[in-house]
């Protein structure tokens, strides 16, 4: 059993399918007049955020509350708490308060891993984004969204475009989509692909137009403007021209193809407003689906005497 969700790599095909199927059922709860289940009554879920991320926090908060868990939001952002000492002390505090699960967002890659294996805390740890490492629930909600639109993921061609080097979303998506049988191509300027990407379970390319041929899903990643100053690319204009998704590129996609973005978007940089607001864009749906998927994860980790994930099915 896996008590924690730290990496998309922790999920077997059975685990991932169970989460997505459970999310499917839970999504129906959101359509009901009473959007609440008693399942996690008496359980405490702490949202421990060392980084600002209102959208992820409220998504987890809504998910936990719909399952009747008690939710404590702990915003630990600030210069003095970026020291490790604080992560430990914070963890010990949460343990003393009886947290059954800690949903952690942290700027340091591996911080959720450290929390899960430190012995500081006994509850389940859910990685809500760690540094440039992973964001597994984002990958799950992306897969959920793809499945709803394309019915199956296996064999689908998914193109992920942008700052892969610094993207936890890309890492989790590559791992999860490989497990689910999709064919993933990462597209970025060479400066924004990590050394070692050749060993990932996906293809990579520097040519967006060539990669879009036959794509079922195009996922655009956020590109931060400050990367320009670190010489990852010469200018915003050149980046947009080579790697941005505009109406012209979108028009060459197959009719059923969808456009995704984990948000927040830099309109005009990696995606134009025309694309972001088009019918193909499922970006708002991704947000909605985030709640169902996170409900499923919390339920499967906390709902029973033991986690439903990581068994030897």
């Amino acid at each position: 059993m896996t008590r924690h969700l730290l990496s998309a790599a922790d999920l077997s095909l059975d685990d991932a399918t169970l989460i997505l199927d459970t999310a499917d059922e839970l999504a129906r709860v959101s359509d009901r007049p009473v959007k609440k289940l008693p399942t996690l009554r008496g359980r405490t879920v702490v949202n421990l955020f060392f980084e600002d991320s209102t959208r992820t926090r409220i998504s987890f908060e809504a998910a936990a509350k719909r399952l009747s868990a008690d939710v404590i939001n702990f915003s630990a952002k600030g210069s003095s708490v970026s020291k490790g000492e604080s992560l430990k002390d914070t963890a010990l505090t949460l343990e003393a308060m009886g947290a059954d699960a800690v949903v952690i967002r942290h700027p340091a890659s591996g911080a959720p891993h450290t929390l899960a294996h430190s012995g500081w805390i006994g509850g389940s740890i859910v990685n809500a984004g760690d540094g440039t490492h992973e964001h597994p629930t984002q990958a799950l909600l992306d897969a959920f969204t793809m499945r709803r639109h394309l019915s199956t993921i296996s064999g689908r061609k998914v193109v992920i475009v942008g700052d892969v080097l610094h993207s936890r979303v890309a890492r989790s998506n590559v791992l999860l989509l490989a497990t689910l049988g999709a064919e993933v191509t990462l597209v970025a300027p060479p400066t924004l692909l990590p050394v070692g990407v050749g060993q990932w379970p996906c293809e990579h390319s520097y040519d967006l137009d060539a990669s879009l041929v036959g794509a079922d899903v195009v996922m655009m990643l956020r590109v931060q403007r400050e990367r320009m100053n670190a010489a990852f690319f010469p200018s915003v204009r050149e980046y947009s021209r080579r790697y941005g998704l505009d109406a012209d590129r979108m028009s060459r996609l197959a009719d059923h193809a969808i456009v995704m973005h984990p948000g927040p978007m830099n309109r005009g940089l990696e995606i134009t407003a025309a694309v972001a607001d088009s019918d193909r864009a499922v970006i708002i749906e991704q947000v909605t689906n985030g709640v169902s998927v996170r409900m499923a994860v919390l339920y499967l980790l906390l709902g029973g005497s033991d986690s439903a994930l990581g068994g030897d099915q």
């Binding site: 059993m1 459970t22 059922e25 008693p38 399942t39 339920y299 906390l302 029973g304 033991d306």
Partner: peptide
């Protein structure tokens, strides 16, 4: 499933359809 009073006595399990 989500309303069972013995949820905590067994590992969490997948949901049926409502």
């Amino acid at each position: 499933t989500m309303f069972r009073d013995d949820l905590r006595m067994r590992p969490a399990r997948g949901l049926g359809r409502t």
